[in-house]
Amino acid sequence: MTAPTVCVFDYGFGNVRSATRALEHVGADVTLTADRAVAENADGLVVPGVGAFAAVMDGLRAARGDQIVGRRLAGGRPVLGICVGMQVMFERGVEHGIESEGLDQWPGVVELLQAPVVPNMGWATVEAPEGTRLFKGVEDERFYFVHSYGAREFPLGTTEDTGRFAAPLVTWSRAGTAEQSDAFVAAVENGPLSATQFHPEKSGDAGLQLLKNWVTGL
């Protein structure tokens, strides 16, 4: 059986080497590149992201990543965003009072977490929804987060099908202590578009299983 092809989009912002190794470990045939043809034609596209929202968006646009993501999703071809690669899928981001446009695949804003300590760094559990495929077998495991910003709301309806398309499945987590914590979106499964705020490639066996779940669905 031929291994699914995955392009890790190499546009200058992300843990591309660790993501590549993790995906290869779970059976994908991985190419690390910013080549448009490869990115558009692979079975799956991974969009990593590290740094400021605005800088990541500038990098994506410079590499035509915004067009590539749009074309893939319009054709129902899978995309996986990781960390800031997830954040830019939202309508906009606000950092240090500066508002930047995202890819607008989902309504909503990425903003500073309202937690006693930021960045939110370390291992944390998630609240995965019923019917999740991404978290199958690892619903109760912990994943590695490192971020100061996140989507604290998900305005797109998540309880009913929205016409032709099933409603997104949204996974939540919390930053801060039990007494004072802030809920944020930890992952989204929305047709061909999936994304995680945490780093699956840095999340041990649980992260590898999550990536395997995504790869086997390509």
Rank of each mutant, 00 (worst) to 15 (best):
M89R: 09
C83R: 03
A39F: 08
D43N: 14
I98G: 00
L103N: 03
Q67D: 15
Q105L: 03
G81I: 03
G51Y: 12
V47E: 08
G75E: 15
D58C: 01
A42M: 09
I82W: 12
V84A: 07
G49T: 10
A54G: 12
I98D: 10
D58V: 09
A39W: 09
A37K: 14
V94H: 00
A74W: 03
V56W: 00
V56K: 06
W106D: 01
G85T: 09
G59L: 04
V84K: 05
I82C: 04
G49P: 07
G102W: 01
E40D: 08
G65K: 10
L60S: 04
R36H: 13
F53V: 11
P78N: 13
G93S: 11
R64K: 15
E99H: 00
G51H: 11
I98V: 14
P78S: 07
M89W: 04
A54C: 03
M89E: 04
G51R: 11
M57P: 05
R72V: 02
R71S: 14
I68T: 14
R36A: 11
D104L: 00
G75I: 00
L45P: 05
R71A: 15
L45E: 06
V46P: 12
Q87A: 07
D43I: 06
L73N: 10
D104E: 08
L60D: 05
G85C: 08
A62D: 15
D66I: 02
V38N: 01
G81M: 05
A37W: 00
Q67T: 10
A37Q: 12
V38C: 10
A55T: 15
P48Q: 12
E91D: 15
G44E: 02
G75S: 14
R71C: 07
L45W: 09
E91C: 00
R71E: 13
P48T: 13
M86L: 15
G49A: 07
R92N: 13
A55K: 15
A54T: 14
R71G: 10
P78L: 02
S100W: 01
I82E: 04
V56C: 15
P48R: 10
R36S: 09
G75P: 07
H96A: 15
G75M: 11
R64E: 14
I68A: 02
G102T: 06
P78G: 08
F53G: 12
G76S: 11
M86H: 12
L45F: 07
R61S: 05
P48W: 13
A74T: 13
P48K: 09
M86P: 07
G44V: 06
G59F: 05
N41L: 04
R77N: 03
W106H: 13
C83S: 07
L80V: 06
D58M: 00
L73D: 04
V47R: 06
V50T: 04
V38R: 12
L103R: 09
A54Y: 02
A52L: 05
M57L: 03
A42N: 05
M89T: 12
V50G: 02
V69H: 09
D58H: 10
C83P: 05
V38F: 04
V56Q: 01
E101G: 13
M86D: 04
G81L: 05
A55W: 01
E95F: 01
V69W: 06
V69Y: 05
V46G: 08
M57K: 12
